[in-house]
């Protein structure tokens, strides 16, 4: 049976023009399959983050093609890309980017309220399910900025999961965590993949982390090696 592709790139190139002309991604041709847990590694400055932003529709300044869930992203408008991110993509960054004045529960609900596919009550219930999954139910009504770094990162993962995305992108999601919390985050990703067939792409320079994923994509000077 042919594996379903979530992402496929064809001759993907990206250059920065400022301050000098600099090609950050060189002829990238990769595929990410449904249910795959992939790590992108490489030395600092090799283009890992740049690749992740392009794949996740945040950066549209590239040449070549990216097919996301069958659609050519280069044909989509800004608003359509926002809808794709809302519905089909979950993000976990190195810094958790929670809204500090909102409660944990409200933060987790934000993408679902934008999607507006369910009633407020249903959204709340889904949010509690995700918080349960991450062991955070008892923190739900606390302000986000009252939690520890590790807890906040888990809230960010819950937020990424709320709309049942096709794929989760992480840019060094454990970069700011101690080894115990890093281990914890990794275990969560692994669990999501094993139990829910969740596709996950994570940029990391933690080789110990990377080795336990399904596949490693290594970048060097903007090229896949």
């Amino acid at each position: 049976m042919e594996k379903i592709k979530i992402i496929e790139t064809k001759n993907l190139n990206k250059s920065f023009h400022d301050p000098v002309e600099f090609q950050a991604l060189k002829n990238i041709n990769i595929e990410i399959g449904q249910g795959e847990f992939v790590a992108i590694v490489g030395s600092s400055g090799s283009g890992k983050s740049t690749l992740l932003y392009v794949l996740s529709t945040l950066d549209t300044d590239y040449t070549g093609h990216i097919y996301f869930d069958g659609d050519d992203l280069s044909l989509k408008t800004k608003n359509q890309l926002a809808e794709i991110r809302n519905e089909k993509i979950g993000f976990v960054f190195q810094f958790h980017y929670l809204l500090p004045e909102f409660t944990v529960l409200e933060n987790v609900c934000l993408p679902a309220m934008k999607l507006a596919r369910f009633s407020d009550a249903e959204i709340k219930e889904h949010a509690y399910q995700k918080l349960d999954l991450l062991g955070l139910r008892d923190q739900a009504l606390k302000k986000a900025n009252k939690l520890s770094g590790g807890q906040q990162q888990r809230v960010a993962i819950a937020r990424a999961l709320i709309n049942q995305p096709k794929i989760i992108f992480g840019d060094e999601p454990t970069g700011n965590l101690d080894s115990k919390n890093s281990q914890n985050v990794f275990d969560i990703f692994k669990e999501l993949k094993d139990n829910f067939n969740q596709s996950i792409v994570v940029v990391t320079h933690d080789m110990h982390f990377a080795e336990r994923t399904d596949r490693i994509i290594t970048l060097s000077d903007g090229e896949v090696v």
């Binding site: 800004k78 608003n79 809302n86 960054f93 980017y97 934008k114």
Partner: peptide, 16 residues
């Protein structure tokens, strides 16, 4: 700015 960035990342449009 960080709030705006994350809202955009999770699918809020410019108009939102």
């Amino acid at each position: 700015m960080p709030d705006i960035a994350i809202l955009k990342a999770i699918g809020y449009k410019d108009s939102d």
